[in-house]
Computed example of a mutant assay.
Amino acid sequence: MRESDIRDAVCRYGRSLFERGLTPGSSGNISVRLEDGRLLMTPTDASLGSLDPARLSLMDAEGRLLSGDKPTKEGPLHRALYETRQGAGAVVHLHSTHSVAVSMLPEVAPGSVLPPLTAYYVMRVGDTALVPYHRPGDPAVADAIRGLAGRYASVLLANHGPVMAGDTLTAAVNAIEELEETAKLYLLLRGLNPRLLSPAQVAELGRAFGGPPAEHRHPGA
């Protein structure tokens, strides 16, 4: 895909996410890794609803700005995911309400935040890791993601929001939306002892559709 098409896609997805209330104000950021290793990233303090393709931040693999506006302060966490997940082609970070709410609950397990409620959560997301709270832009967030050693494509920053790596921008957007919907279901069902997918059902999904590696799935799957 040409760089101009990728720039347009970042702006198109950003506007869609913003208009559907998945990341308010100037929150959230998107990046794409180009074929030559450079990174295209949304600028700092920019609303995803009104991005300009020509002003997206273009950086080298080490995070040096080559052109465009100053990049999001969350750039280090994006680069940490690219460093540890070699197949990642895009990273999306949102401040979506239900995912943020789940990140504040005391009972969630750091290595498996959400249970296997639906087939599409298992297929598109797998397991989600919880990273302890750090202020936005703190280099410690990137260090915490590196500490996961690439085991998770889906990461929830405590009291902050979800981050999703995907092979493509479309895959990352679809997965982070699935994470948000699963977080919403979890909150609706909290305390009601819902019926989860069984380990056998999760395994069947893996055989039929592929999906996340086994270590990303819910314990017992």
Results as ranks from 00 to 15, higher is better:
131 V>L: 13
87 G>S: 02
193 N>G: 13
107 E>Y: 12
197 L>R: 08
83 E>D: 14
145 I>Q: 10
21 G>D: 11
100 V>L: 04
141 V>D: 09
44 T>R: 09
157 L>M: 13
36 D>F: 07
72 T>D: 12
98 H>A: 10
214 A>W: 08
203 A>V: 09
21 G>Y: 08
180 E>P: 07
130 L>S: 06
181 E>D: 05
116 P>Y: 04
177 E>C: 03
142 A>S: 08
34 L>H: 10
67 S>V: 02
71 P>S: 12
221 A>L: 07
184 K>Q: 07
41 M>Q: 14
99 S>G: 10
3 E>W: 06
116 P>W: 00
58 L>V: 05
168 T>C: 10
42 T>C: 13
164 M>Y: 02
147 G>F: 05
221 A>D: 10
54 A>R: 15
173 V>M: 01
29 N>D: 10
178 E>K: 00
34 L>D: 07
213 P>S: 06
57 S>W: 09
194 P>F: 13
131 V>P: 01
200 A>C: 05
145 I>M: 08
195 R>C: 04
107 E>D: 13
193 N>W: 11
173 V>H: 05
40 L>W: 05
206 G>L: 11
215 E>A: 07
45 D>A: 15
7 R>L: 02
97 T>F: 03
143 D>T: 09
125 V>N: 07
151 R>A: 14
45 D>S: 14
86 Q>P: 00
156 L>T: 02
6 I>Q: 11
81 L>E: 08
78 H>N: 06
163 V>W: 00
195 R>Q: 13
123 M>T: 06
57 S>I: 07
71 P>N: 12
11 C>G: 08
105 L>F: 01
36 D>W: 11
43 P>M: 14
217 R>I: 06
94 L>D: 06
14 G>H: 08
88 A>N: 00
217 R>S: 06
5 D>S: 11
1 M>A: 12
188 L>N: 08
147 G>D: 03
186 Y>I: 10
80 A>Q: 04
72 T>S: 15
23 T>H: 10
84 T>K: 02
142 A>H: 10
93 H>A: 06
32 V>H: 10
72 T>H: 05
9 A>M: 14
155 V>R: 05
175 A>T: 03
163 V>F: 00
61 A>R: 15
178 E>H: 00
194 P>Q: 13
19 E>H: 03
29 N>R: 11
138 D>H: 09
9 A>S: 12
19 E>P: 05
78 H>E: 02
69 D>E: 15
6 I>A: 06
55 R>M: 15
100 V>F: 01
187 L>D: 01
204 E>Y: 08
161 G>K: 01
161 G>Y: 06
20 R>E: 15
96 S>V: 01
208 A>F: 11
206 G>H: 09
123 M>E: 13
210 G>A: 06
168 T>A: 08
103 S>L: 01
89 G>D: 01
12 R>W: 03
140 A>G: 08
174 N>L: 09
123 M>V: 11
86 Q>K: 00
181 E>T: 04
37 G>P: 00
124 R>N: 13
19 E>F: 04
202 V>F: 05
82 Y>W: 01
79 R>N: 07
39 L>R: 15
112 S>I: 01
14 G>T: 06
162 P>A: 09
91 V>G: 03
77 L>F: 05
